[in-house]
Simulated assay, not measured.
Amino acid sequence: MARKRKLKLHGFNNLTKTLSFNIYDICYARSKEEVSSYIEYIDEAYNAERLTNILTDVVDIIGANILNVAHQDYDPQGASVTMLISEEPIAAEKLSNTEAPGPLPDSVVMHLDKSHVTVHTYPESHPENGISTFRADIDVSTCGRISPLKALNYLIHSFDSDIVTLDYRVRGFTRDVNGKKHFTDHNINSIQNYLAADTKRRYQMIDVNVYQENLFHTKMLLKDFNLDSYLFGVDADDIPPKEQRLIVEALKREMLEIFYGRNIPKGMKLM
């Protein structure tokens, strides 16, 4: 196979590549006290300090220097972290934009360009049925040759992700030495190509892609369902079978509504 010739640019790479990553962790807490305890637990588990550490690893994976960090824990709940980043020129030359999974948490390597990384968390609970939902919104935006998709696997493994929605977009253009515009500098037909094999096995996934606009969207729903994994402060064996069935239905309804982005009418049979 002929080797692809390296693109020669006029000036620097002006392309902006943005990965928007939303994860949801679903839990059932039976009483108001358990709901309160869950929100307190999740708020501490994903406080601004831990989120800063996660984003620092992301910056390392895509190879950047951190210029500035702003972080805040909110009252009564939630946290935010914003990092301004700059390119690491030496590391950038060693990285590839090929469609392949990025590293997992135990194999982090260096790489990033100039832009920003942000995360915001939203712990909340249903007012009646005991369902609590933790959401984290993460944006990784780079200006230059490197794609933030390399941080994808690390982010999925850094959170307890029941549902994940992913959006990737390449914006703007860069110009070569002959004046020709290039609206992307790497081939991509699905975000799934950047996911590790174990992730693909664990999740049901749907793509909605607009190739001509360089817009890529993937939704992920965890396949396995173990009730004990979704209960807070109680074991499934301590709950009567009839109540277990009602809890399972409420949890699955919540997950499917988030996955499909619409409310499911009561009485409709769930998968």
Rank of each mutant, 00 (worst) to 15 (best):
N187C: 03
Y211M: 14
L7G: 07
G130W: 07
I146D: 08
E124L: 03
S158V: 01
L155M: 14
T18Q: 12
L231H: 08
T133K: 11
A236L: 10
D139F: 05
I54G: 01
E254Q: 13
V164F: 06
L270R: 05
A151Y: 00
I206C: 02
A2P: 14
I90L: 13
I206F: 11
I258K: 11
V140I: 15
G179L: 09
V140L: 08
I54W: 01
I85K: 09
N214T: 10
K114S: 15
L7Q: 07
N263Y: 02
F259M: 06
F159A: 06
Y260I: 10
F225E: 09
S158D: 03
I23N: 10
A196D: 15
S132V: 06
M255G: 12
L215S: 13
I258T: 11
D137V: 08
H116R: 12
A236S: 15
I85R: 02
E257Y: 08
R175V: 15
D160G: 01
D106C: 01
D167P: 00
T98C: 04
E34W: 01
A250H: 04
L149Y: 02
G11S: 10
S141Y: 00
L67R: 12
K114I: 08
L215Y: 15
L55G: 02
T118Q: 09
L227S: 06
P76L: 08
S190C: 07
S229I: 01
S229Q: 13
I85Q: 01
G179W: 08
L55C: 04
K4F: 08
V109H: 07
